[in-house]
Each structure stands twice: as structure tokens, then as C-alpha cells.
């Protein structure tokens, strides 16, 4: 597995390759949609971390949230967060609470970094509602 630190925060080329379209309209649509939806998922993951619930259901929920967030990141090229989600999902599925707890803390670092990149690119493409 690649080291999270070495990965790009947001790889726009990945997004363009995925959508097969590099128009400002597509980029804005994809990134603003991602920003809105991913924020919700990150919030839920952070909340779950604060409550530190470790039941089977809670871990399954965490795995599901990470799985969905990972898919979204893959679509828009948010490589760093995608890698983190992969680790978290695996840890949740394997009931590896130590890794889950330590890696979950990285969200507080990776997500704001991604958020600022998102806002910057959205502004560059003429999206004003950030």
C-alpha cells in the first residue's frame, strides 16, 4: 500500500480521465458534488470516532462509510483521502481497533487539506459558491 503522505491531495487529471471530459462544467459538477457529499461522510466518521463505539454494527457502519467515501475519492482523484479510507475500511472489517483509532485521527489533517484544494480549484473554474 502506498504511503499516504506521498500521494497527491487532489489529482485533477484523474477526474478528467474518469469523466472523459475536462470542461469547467464537468469539473465544477463533480467537485462541488464531491465536496458536499464527502463532508457528510467525513463528519459521520469523525463522530463515530468520538463516541468510540466498537460493536459489530458500528464497525460495519464504519467500513461501509469508508467504502463509499473511497469510491467517491477514486472518482475525483482525491488520492490521499482514498488511501486513508482504504486503510480505515480494512481496519474496521478486521476489527483492528488500534489501527482504526490511530488512522482515524489523520482525517482531521487530510480532510481540511483536501477541502482547501477543492475550494481553490472550484474558484479557479469559476464556481463562486464555496
Amino acid at each position: 500500500m502506498a504511503d499516504t503522505a506521498t500521494l497527491p491531495v487532489l489529482d485533477l487529471n484523474m477526474l478528467i480521465a474518469m469523466y472523459g471530459d475536462g470542461s469547467a462544467e464537468t469539473i465544477i459538477l463533480a467537485l462541488s458534488g464531491f465536496r458536499r457529499e464527502a463532508a457528510h461522510y467525513v463528519q459521520q466518521l469523525q463522530d463515530a470516532g468520538q463516541h468510540n463505539v466498537t460493536t459489530d454494527n458500528a464497525l460495519a457502519d464504519t467500513a461501509r462509510l469508508c467504502h463509499s467515501l473511497k469510491s467517491m475519492c477514486g472518482l475525483v482523484g482525491a488520492a490521499k483521502l482514498m488511501q486513508l479510507c482504504m486503510i480505515l475500511e480494512q481496519a474496521a472489517r478486521q476489527h483492528d481497533l488500534t489501527t482504526l483509532q490511530s488512522e482515524r485521527l489523520k482525517l482531521a489533517e487530510v480532510w481540511p487539506e483536501l477541502l482547501s484544494q477543492l475550494d481553490l480549484i472550484l474558484l479557479q473554474h469559476g464556481y463562486v459558491d464555496v
Partner: peptide, 13 residues
Amino acid sequence: DDVVLMCDFLYGV
């Protein structure tokens, strides 16, 4: 797909 972004992507394609 239960992820809106992914569902919209698939739908668009």
C-alpha cells in the same frame, strides 16, 4: 449506487 456522486456519474455515462 447509494453514493449520490457515483450514481450521478453512472447515470451520466
